[in-house]
Design a binder for these strands. Structure first.
Length: 558
RNA sequence: GCGCCCGUAGCUCAGUGGAUCAGAGUACUUGGCUUCGAACCAAGGGGUCGCAAGUUCGAAUCUUGCCGGGCGUACCA
């Protein structure tokens, strides 16, 4: 492809004396393997009819591409379509599984995602952001980046005050020993119930609200004093650990892992210190007893970094977080993957950082995705407790898989859930339907797994290569080879746009192409076995590799 | 009010700095397993790409306005 591009550039220069970077696209199969619209673009520039330009170009191109192209044609208003020779297509397919971009070669990348809050539940939204974040991190890694996966969460803050308040109510005071009466399996649910209780009390009961604010402050103090022994501290640390255990359990289920947790309590100090320092230098201002950053001069809005109680808000903690990441990794790129409800928030935080550490904000990239919405328009709220937990989604998928196949299959469950989340373009909201969204059919993860297993099954029935690789391909073989050869371009595009869904779309089309081939073409025992066997092998390799990038298992047998 | 995002088939979504771009899955109707795995394949109906204007040889895609929806907008995150 690059070679064709180079030749095209040279020919355009020679014939028309024009510099341009011609773009090659993949047209509909009937038109050829590559297509370019340069003639149309040139026509305007040099004042000729597009069709004439195309004809001149093709004439000059013919001898140059003699070794490569089987056919060069002009179509429609002046598109130039190129069909490459079969053995070159096969050669391109042969290198497809290993070809990777080097966009982030040797770059140190910190990828932060998932970000559930201790003392709260890991819900459907977290599951989505975890799966998407993991795939994006994988993309960065595919492109040569040295990726450090990190996780951030609020182990201090008002929500902790709310939960602690309810826990104390439940235990009848500061009695950490009573925690042992809660069964291990119930801990996570029990904690999220306490959060709901605390939240309701906070908004309905003035007395409770005051108590919660005090508890919030006590939690910060507990961190300052490194208190692990007082009864209050024991309750806090124990239940905090319960939260992290619950998170680790679901990450294990998802087969994702993090190098490091950054609890907010560990970024708070540096955050406050920095904000206070920069307050003196005029980056931040005092206003109504709070410390704020005024975003209006930059087209943004004002946000509070330290509230009038002297406590840091998320803004200050985020400053502490990015600086802690910098101290730990001296990153080239820092990506944070979150929901799009905080885009404006993040702009303000990054703008404030730009004032005193521009190298940090310049290297930061905030990637956002939409919200997970329940089908039936019920809005989820962890405060109200009507949430779909991450575990609920996985359980529902497991149930659906068992019902459809009659067996327990964790790999298919992972494929169904992850693919359902990943196949959509990152950005818009996604509708999650617990009943329907976990499909095993059509454009789904299990479809890909099934198509992979079938290919592996064929390959297992072969012993070595029988015969010669054909010089010319039959139409169905050619379609498959052509699709396989597109893989590196798809990865490239996915990396460039940080969009894993391109890979999903491609893999589905690839599997479809294979299934169509498989329907009418025998491999084992056929006179074209060597050629077909090679194609099936390459197909399976690409499918497996693509699924690996998405962190979806590709078992040989289902 | 202002800012950001979104509006494509009944439903869920691809396609988005132009052309070969009106597509997929699902649902519905129908056909295909004595042959490498039917979680598959094939066929059919179904859309004024929210509306309108503009730019262009050409617009789902770019510009503007309007309509509809979501999120954010100072001490939650």
């Amino acid at each position: 492809m690059q070679k064709i591009q180079q030749i095209l550039t040279r020919v355009i220069q020679k014939v028309f004396n024009q510099h341009m970077q011609p773009e090659l696209s993949r047209p509909d199969e009937q038109f050829g393997d590559f297509s370019t619209n340069v003639a149309l673009q040139l026509a305007g520039k040099i004042g000729k009819k597009p069709r004439e330009v195309a004809e001149e170009l093709v004439e000059a191109l013919q001898p140059e591409l003699a070794e490569i192209a089987a056919d060069i044609s002009i179509a429609g208003p002046g598109f130039i379509n190129i069909r490459i020779k079969d053995h070159l297509l096969l050669a391109a397919a042969a290198v497809a599984p290993e070809s990777k971009p080097d966009t982030y070669k040797d770059k140190v990348v910190v990828a932060e995602y998932s970000d559930p809050n201790p003392f709260k539940v890991l819900h459907a939204g977290h599951l989505y952001t975890t799966v998407v974040g993991d795939a994006v991190a994988n993309l960065l890694q595919e492109a040569g980046g040295k990726v450090h996966r990190v996780n951030f969460g609020g182990d201090v803050g008002l929500h902790v005050g709310r939960t602690m308040w309810a826990i104390l109510q439940e235990l009848g005071g500061e009695h950490p020993e009573k925690l042992s009466s809660i069964p291990k399996a119930q801990r996570s649910i029990w904690l999220s119930q306490q959060y709901v209780k605390g939240s309701n009390a906070y908004s309905e009961d003035a007395e409770a609200k005051e108590a919660i604010i005090k508890l919030n402050k006590r939690v910060y103090q507990l961190h300052e004093k490194r208190d692990h022994t007082s009864p209050f501290a024991q309750i806090y640390w124990t239940t905090r650990e319960w939260s992290y255990d619950a998170f680790d359990a679901i990450y294990k289920r998802l087969n994702v892992s993090f190098e490091k947790y950054y609890p907010e309590s560990e970024t708070t100090e540096l955050g406050i210190k920095t904000v206070r320092e920069q307050l003196k230098k005029g980056v931040f201002q005092e206003s109504d007893g709070a410390v704020v950053f005024k975003g209006e001069p930059y087209g943004l809005h004002t946000r509070v970094f330290i509230n009038s109680n002297g406590l840091p808000t998320y803004e200050a903690k985020d400053i502490g977080l990015i600086m802690t990441k910098w101290n730990d990794y001296k990153f080239d790129i820092s990506t944070v993957i979150t929901g799009n409800d905080i885009v404006e928030y993040m702009k303000v935080v990054l703008k404030s950082i730009e004032q005193f550490a521009p190298e940090l904000s310049n290297r930061s990239k905030h990637l956002t995705h939409g919200m997970v919405k329940m089908a039936g328009r019920v809005k989820m709220s962890s405060r109200k407790g009507n949430i779909l937990r991450g575990d609920d989604i996985l359980d529902a998928a497991a149930e659906a898989t068992k019902k459809a196949t009659g067996q327990i299959n964790d790999e298919a469950v992972l494929a169904a859930v992850k693919y359902a989340f990943l196949k959509q373009r990152i950005g818009g909201d996604i509708i999650y339907d617990p009943e329907e969204s976990v499909s095993l059919e059509g454009n789904s993860g299990p479809y890909l797994q099934y198509a992979h297993a079938r290919a592996c099954s064929i390959l297992q029935k072969t012993t070595g290569f029988e015969g010669e690789i054909a010089a010319e391909l039959e139409p169905a073989e050619r379609s498959l080879a052509r699709k396989i050869s597109e893989y590196p371009e798809v990865i490239q595009k996915s990396v460039a746009d940080m969009m894993p869904h391109y890979i999903c779309t491609y893999l589905y089309e690839l599997a479809q192409t294979f299934n169509r081939f498989y329907e009418h073409n025998r491999v084992v025992g056929n006179e074209r076995q060597a050629t077909r066997q090679l194609l099936v092998q390459l197909y399976a390799d690409v499918l497996k590799d693509g699924l690996r990038v998405l962190n979806i298992p590709a078992p040989v047998r289902l």
